[in-house]
Amino acid sequence: MNPVPGSAIAHLRRALRVVSVSAFISCLALSSYAADSVVQVQLDTKNATPRAVESLTERGILRDYRFAWTSIAQAVELNTADPLEGPFAGEAKRLLRETVVSQQRSGLSRQYVNQSHRLEAVFYAPEGDVIELHDTAEYEIRISDGGKIIHDEHVVMHFVVLMTPGADRWVIRQLQAVPKS
């Protein structure tokens, strides 16, 4: 059996130190993302017409809308389109993918922090195949260029949202920011 040279052991130790420090930093980053990515959503369906929203449907929309915004936050912060698979379809998906691709090209990223959404259902189709929601969203938006924050602002935004039921979830088909009317 060949003896292990002392320099090799020192190398190994250094490598292990680097790996453990990286793992620690990754854990910190993930936990800080988890803390930031808590998305508060409230849904009011009492004004939905012409069809009333069943409580089970309401719960599904609430769950899937929250998940959709968590996915948006992940996608535009980490500049990856993967989180957009599932919660989005059609135009909304195309637009968000374009956003990610455009950010990858320019080296920018966005962070949506401390999100809070007040959703109101304003239209629920007679056959239940589409619902229109109005979202008053509050969050802090941070724009970074190559990791350096160039803009940080607390905003109140208004969105018009179209959601349709998929096989096992509600998906966002249109997500359009509008001026406050």
């Binding site: 637009l95 968000l96 374009e98 956003t99 455009s102 950010q103 090209r105 320019s106 080296g107 920018l108 966005r110 724009i143 260029d145 160039i150 803009h151 359009q176 920011a177």
Partner: peptide, 13 residues
């Protein structure tokens, strides 16, 4: 100066 335009589907610098 550096100009940034950030919007839906757009991230220009």
């Amino acid at each position: 100066a550096t100009f940034y335009l950030v919007g839906p589907g757009v991230s220009r610098k």
